[in-house]
Design a binder for these strands. Structure first.
Lengths: 159, 159
DNA sequence: GTCAGTGCAAACTTTTTGCAACTAC
DNA sequence: GTAGTTGCAAAAAGTTTGCACTGAC
C-alpha cells in the first residue's frame, strides 16, 4: 500500500470512528492524524506539537492530547511508556515489532522476531482478553558499549 | 530461601555495590532497601514514601529517588512505566514474570510463561547486548469485561 | 442556533535540582 | 575534617482541567 493510500485509509477509519461516536470532524483532528502518519517511529506529544508548528498549523496542547486519546481509542495509534514520558506510534498497516532500549543513551530501536511474535500472540491468559502487547528489551547498544570500554580502560590506567 | 535470608543477602549485595562505587552506607538507604523487599508486587515512589512514613521512618522524596536510582544500578530492583508514572519492583531471587494490564481499570497482574521466557532470553540482537526485558500484554480483565457487557445491554435497551 | 471542540492559562502530578545542614568515613 | 548525603523547597517536565470563544453540524 502506498503512503497516499494509507493516508486515505486512516482518514476514512478516523471519520467512521468519529461519526460512530458522535464526535465532530474538525480540521485540527485530521491535520494531527496526517502528521502522525508522516512520522516514522516514535514521537511524544511535545514533538508532535513542534512538528505541527513547523508546518505552520497552530494547535493547542490540549487539542493534541484530546486527539491522541481519540486516535488511541480508534486503534490508529499505540502508546508506549519509555523514559518518563508517553511515546506514541502509528499502528495501521505497520508490522508488529519489538523495542530495544539502550539504558545508557536512551535510544530506542525496533526489531522483528517472528518466533517471539508467534508465541505471544498464541498465548491465552486466565480471566483476561488480550488486545495487544509491548515487548521492551533493555540493554546496551554497541556504541555505548564501546564508549564504556574506553572509559574503563582510562580509569584502570590512572590507578 | 527464607525472607530473612533474602533480606540479609540483598543488604550484602547493596553494601558491596555501595563500597565498590564509593557511596556511603547510610541508614536511609538500608531502610529503603528493607522496605522495598517487604513489598510484594509493584510500587511507585509516592507509595514507598507513604510506607516509610507509616513505619515512622522519615525520609525525603529526594532521598527515595536517589536510593531507587542506586538500587536500579545495583540490579536489586527493576523499573516499569505503567500509567504515567514509574513503578518499581524488587528483582533479587524473584521469578521472571510478565504483566497483564487492563486498559479499563488499569490494574496490573502477573503471569509466567516458560515458552515466552525461553524464546526471548535465547534471542540475539544485532549490535545490542540485552540485559533484561519487560513484556506488557494489554487487554481487558474479566471483571471489566462483565461490567462493559452490562453497560452495553442497558444502552441498547434505552434506544 | 446549539453544543462539542478549541485555545489558553492555570492547576496538578511526577521527577529533578540547588543549597544549607548533617554525618559516614 | 571533608566530601558524599540528606531534607526541604523550588523548579522543571509532562499531563489534565476550567472557561470563554469558536465553528461543525
Amino acid at each position: 500500500m502506498g503512503n497516499t493510500d494509507i493516508q486515505e485509509k486512516v482518514r476514512q477509519i478516523f471519520t467512521d470512528y468519529l461519526s460512530r461516536n458522535g464526535h465532530r470532524r474538525t480540521p485540527e483532528r485530521f491535520a494531527i492524524l496526517d502528521k502522525i502518519y508522516s512520522i516514522d517511529g516514535h514521537f511524544s506529544v511535545e514533538q508532535l506539537l513542534h512538528e505541527m508548528e513547523a508546518m505552520k498549523f497552530r494547535v493547542s496542547r490540549a487539542t493534541v492530547y484530546n486527539t491522541v486519546t481519540l486516535l488511541l481509542d480508534a486503534k490508529l495509534i499505540v502508546r508506549h511508556s519509555f523514559n518518563n514520558s508517553a511515546q506514541y506510534e502509528k499502528s495501521y498497516n505497520t508490522q508488529t515489532h519489538h523495542h530495544l532500549i539502550c539504558t545508557e543513551c536512551g535510544r530506542v530501536s525496533e526489531f522483528e522476531n517472528k518466533g517471539i511474535k508467534g508465541i505471544i500472540e498464541e498465548s491465552k491468559f486466565p480471566r483476561f482478553t488480550a488486545m495487544n502487547y509491548s515487548l521492551y528489551v533493555y540493554g546496551i547498544c554497541s556504541n555505548c558499549k564501546r564508549l564504556k570500554t574506553i572509559r574503563m580502560k582510562k580509569q584502570n590506567k590512572s590507578k
